[in-house]
């Protein structure tokens, strides 16, 4: 059975959906951030698949930039988690419902 474009895209779609489920369902902000990483990773998989299918290197370069954005997002996101924890002693997103305290 030959593995083609749609197989990789289907895997990417499932991982993305799992990530969305994590963001929507979980209350722990650290797990929410991990779910966002899962979604970015699924998008990367789709980019590399299309790059392979079209024979162009551009898709892989976009993956490089997505990784840069993911690293920046995690650094700033975890800094925000740190100060929120310092002020509120919680990582629960339901408890973080004010912009200023």
């Amino acid at each position: 059975m030959p593995v083609g474009v749609s197989h990789y895209l289907a895997v990417s779609a499932v991982i993305f959906a799992v990530g969305v489920a994590g963001v929507l369902l979980r209350r722990n902000i650290l797990v929410v951030l991990m779910s966002i990483e899962l979604m970015l990773n699924a998008a990367n998989l789709a980019f590399v698949t299309f790059s392979r299918a079209s024979g162009a290197v551009g898709g892989q370069i976009v993956v490089l930039f997505v990784m840069t954005v993911a690293a920046a997002e995690v650094a700033v996101g975890l800094a925000i988690v740190l100060i929120a924890f310092r002020a509120r002693e919680t990582t629960d997103v339901d408890e973080m419902n004010v912009m200023k305290w």
């Binding site: 030959p2 779609a13 392979r52």
Partner: peptide, 24 residues
């Protein structure tokens, strides 16, 4: 999530062709 998954799988399967043997 279920609606999103169905949509994405539909596009992945129908848009590209499940067992396409071309240009890989």
């Amino acid at each position: 999530v279920i609606v999103l998954l169905m949509e994405a799988l539909f596009v992945a399967v129908m848009g590209v062709g499940w067992l396409s043997k071309e240009a890989w």
